[in-house]
């Protein structure tokens, strides 16, 4: 694999790649790494969602990549600008873990599952099928998405490597 071909997606960040470039985001805990792909024109996008909804934002101008409800529409638009056709998009996602188990189940503690639920709601709203997911449980994940094959590779400390 050519290292130069890796596009890094930070926390609360989103990127678009094409023609075989790899989108990568590291250390997903409760955050969700969601990918969209147009297989025909090989355009892919990845977002590293940190929080479920911008309704909880307490900042006047916020980073739209951070929230599921604002980042996913923005990613769709950026991919469309690259020539992709939203009607052909398919999605995959990983992350949304609950890193620590607590008996007091406050909303903050359940942030992982809430991120996953919110991402799914957005996909439904835009009629994008979710092909596969590796979400929940209690461990961190690093993910790479290949914009040629549409394969999502997931690495974790305990579970090794998985492809979905």
């Amino acid at each position: 694999m050519i290292v130069d071909n890796v596009v890094k997606v930070g926390m609360a960040d989103l990127k678009v790649a094409a023609g075989g470039a790899i989108l990568k985001t590291t250390g997903l805990g409760s955050c969700v790494g969601l990918t969209l792909f147009d297989e025909r024109c090989k355009v892919a996008g990845m977002v590293h969602v940190m929080l479920p909804t911008s309704e909880i934002a307490r900042e006047a101008s916020f980073n739209i990549a951070k929230y599921a409800d604002t980042s996913i529409p923005h990613l769709i638009e950026l991919m469309r600008q690259e020539g992709a056709e939203p009607a052909r998009f398919v999605a995959k996602m990983a992350g949304g873990a609950q890193m620590f188990a607590f008996t007091t189940g406050s909303d903050t503690m359940r942030i992982g599952p809430r991120n996953v639920e919110s991402c799914k709601r957005m996909l439904q709203r835009f009629n994008i099928p979710l092909l596969s997911e590796d979400t929940g449980l209690n461990y961190g994940r690093t993910v790479e998405f290949n914009s040629m094959s549409g394969m999502l590779t997931i690495r974790s400390v305990q579970q090794g490597v998985k492809e979905i």
Partner: peptide, 10 residues
């Protein structure tokens, strides 16, 4: 015991 990023983001 896990990746620092996954733990700290919590």
């Amino acid at each position: 015991v896990d990746m620092a990023g996954a733990i700290l983001s919590y």
